[in-house]
């Protein structure tokens, strides 16, 4: 027999034996998995962002397939529509989705906050923050290297070329919080949107005294307290360490503080 025929025979027979062994092993060690899990996972975005509170999409799908009620299980990536589909698979009813998004708590664009030093190191906020307070005199604001952009699993955040601040695309953001964790200055926070009123938030983190904060940035919160006085709800706005805070649980979204703020550091957001 020619070498070619022998080779084909040997390889062919080895292949057949291996296939038989693999078949037996696969049958013997078969693990039953609820078929719902795979069907649910198909509906999920597959970004493994963790916004649901589980370690990834598979873990969430497993939880959905096993849960007795879907009221507390939410995947903002799949949205209300997706959760309805999952509910249909399980024959249960879906809860109402809480809409959460990332908001940027710094509005100190380049035009308002001038460079005092130049950072030419690695383009990473975490590394820059390890060395010093940042290129501008404000040591609380956005560092502008885009760590939030690189961690976002939904491609929902981008750096603005002009302002050098991150901009959130609310049509894509699901509020998973990866950017908030990555930000070394805690500039980004996750806020819950309300159906009834706009989201009002302080877009500044500057804790310096008013006189200093005014010099550091043109749109910094100076802790003047005008927002607090304008607010019709008790304790919804507080000022501590020369910085205003808005309690989202108490805020009614009247936007009086937004109008009153002389520094334009309180913003309102309607998605």
């Amino acid at each position: 027999m020619s070498v070619i025929t022998v080779s084909i025979l040997i390889l062919g027979i080895t292949g057949i034996i291996a296939a038989v062994v693999l078949y037996i092993v696969a049958k013997k060690f078969h693990v039953y998995e609820n078929p719902d899990i795979a069907r649910i996972e198909e509906i999920l975005p597959g970004a493994n962002c963790g916004a649901c509170g589980f370690s990834g999409c598979h873990a969430f799908a497993k939880a959905c397939a096993e849960a007795k009620s879907l009221e507390d299980l939410q995947c903002p990536g799949a949205g209300q529509e997706g959760m309805e589909q999952i509910a249909a698979i399980r024959g249960l009813t879906a809860g109402t989705l809480t809409r959460r998004v990332a908001i940027v708590g710094c509005n100190g664009a380049c035009a308002y906050r001038h460079e005092a030093t130049h950072y030419d190191g690695v383009r990473s906020c975490a590394i820059e923050a390890g060395y010093y307070g940042g290129e501008t005199p404000c040591v609380y604001g956005c560092l502008g290297c885009g760590d939030c952009v690189s961690v976002c699993p939904h491609d929902a955040i981008a750096m603005d070329d002009e302002t050098h601040l991150p901009v959130v695309d609310f049509s894509k953001c699901v509020g998973c919080g990866k950017c908030a964790d990555a930000c070394p200055h805690n500039v980004i926070e996750i806020a819950t949107l309300s159906d009834e009123h706009p989201l009002v938030y302080v877009a500044c983190r500057n804790k310096d005294k008013g006189g200093i904060a005014i010099k550091e940035c043109d749109v910094s919160c100076i802790g003047c307290g005008k927002c607090k006085r304008a607010c019709p709800v008790d304790n919804a706005v507080t000022v501590s360490e020369f910085l205003a805070h808005i309690d989202p649980a108490l805020c009614i979204g009247c936007e009086k503080c937004v109008e009153e703020c002389p520094r334009h550091s309180i913003h309102s957001l309607t998605v």
Binding site: G121, V122, S124, A126, I127, G130
Partner: peptide
């Protein structure tokens, strides 16, 4: 390569 920058980050 900025090797030390990243090692410092890992340490922190």
């Amino acid at each position: 390569r900025p090797i030390l920058d990243f090692i410092k980050l890992a340490k922190s």
